[in-house]
């Protein structure tokens, strides 16, 4: 049972935790604040924290100069497309593993996870070569395929753990009630698995959005998503802190919001169920 805690102790905890939390969050906060400054204020000495002339100018400039929307759109397509296709391929596979397990199920599952452990750099050139041959270099299609494949093991895994929580009895009941396999998946399994499928979509969308090896190495201009867009700011071009901040804020804002919804799934998805 939780014990009654003195307000004094609770206050100390609260203050300490908030300080630590704010320190960890500070780089993000600072980026967001700086994005509303003018370039001069962004590098003023001493730095200004809150009392500056708030401006939206940077956001306009970033969009104008670099066509932010195009990168955003590429990110959405790559992250969304890869996740959606991944889930469509993974649902039947996870269904099989969860409800018709065989002696090999465990091995297959572990093998799938192990492909996730393959260091990307080890297979960079073959993939690069294949992309050139197949005309996939710097195309969204190519990246959707690659990002889908690198996340597929996690998607299968997450769905598998969610499906396993659905009692087999219920699916058998549906079978006894005269439901075909299709009706069983459609009317019984899917409605019950909606929360799990949604969490899986969410977490893998985030992982795909932040993927920064293949997106950097397999795109140039056309298909580059936000990861590559931001990386292009790494070449020094004078004073650009405010604009960098605006670009960064735009790149991370959508995902921060989604991320906050998926805290719990994070643990399940990234530890392969080894921590509960």
């Amino acid at each position: 049972m939780a014990r009654a805690v003195t307000n004094r102790r609770k206050s100390v905890n609260t203050i300490l935790a908030w300080i630590v939390g704010l320190v960890i969050f500070f780089p993000i906060l600072w980026t967001i604040l700086t994005s509303f400054k003018t370039e001069a204020q962004a590098i003023s000495s001493p730095p200004v924290f809150l009392f500056f002339d708030w401006t939206l100018e940077n956001y306009g400039v970033v969009q104008e100069r670099s066509d932010y929307m195009r990168f955003l759109w590429n990110s959405v397509i790559i992250a969304g497309g890869s996740t959606l296709i991944g889930v469509i391929i993974a649902v039947p596979a996870a269904w099989s593993m969860a409800f018709v397990p065989s002696r090999r199920t465990k091995d297959i599952l572990l093998w799938m996870l192990s492909t996730k452990m393959l260091p990307a750099v080890g297979v960079l050139y073959p993939i690069y070569l294949m992309f050139i041959r197949l005309g996939l270099l710097d195309t969204r299609t190519g990246l959707v395929i690659v990002v889908m494949l690198i996340n597929l093991p996690i998607i299968v895994w997450m769905l598998y753990t969610y499906f396993r929580e659905i009692p087999v009895d219920i699916l058998e009941a549906a079978r006894m009630d005269g439901a075909s396999l299709k009706e069983e998946i459609l009317h019984v399994l899917t409605p019950m698995a909606v929360p799990g499928i949604a969490s899986t979509l969410l977490l893998n969308f985030i992982l795909a959005w932040n993927e920064a090896f293949w997106t950097l190495n397999l795109t140039a201009a056309k298909a580059a998503p936000l990861t590559a867009f931001i990386a292009s700011y790494s070449s020094p071009e004078g004073l650009f802190f405010a604009k960098l901040s605006a670009a960064s804020t735009m790149a991370i804002a959508p995902i921060l919001i989604l991320g906050w919804f998926s805290q719990k799934q994070l643990v399940r998805g990234l530890t392969f169920g080894a921590v509960k």
Binding site: I24, F25, A212, L226, L256, G259, L266
Partner: peptide
């Protein structure tokens, strides 16, 4: 939050 910030 930092975990959700893209590496670049």
């Amino acid at each position: 939050a930092p975990f959700f910030v893209m590496p670049t």
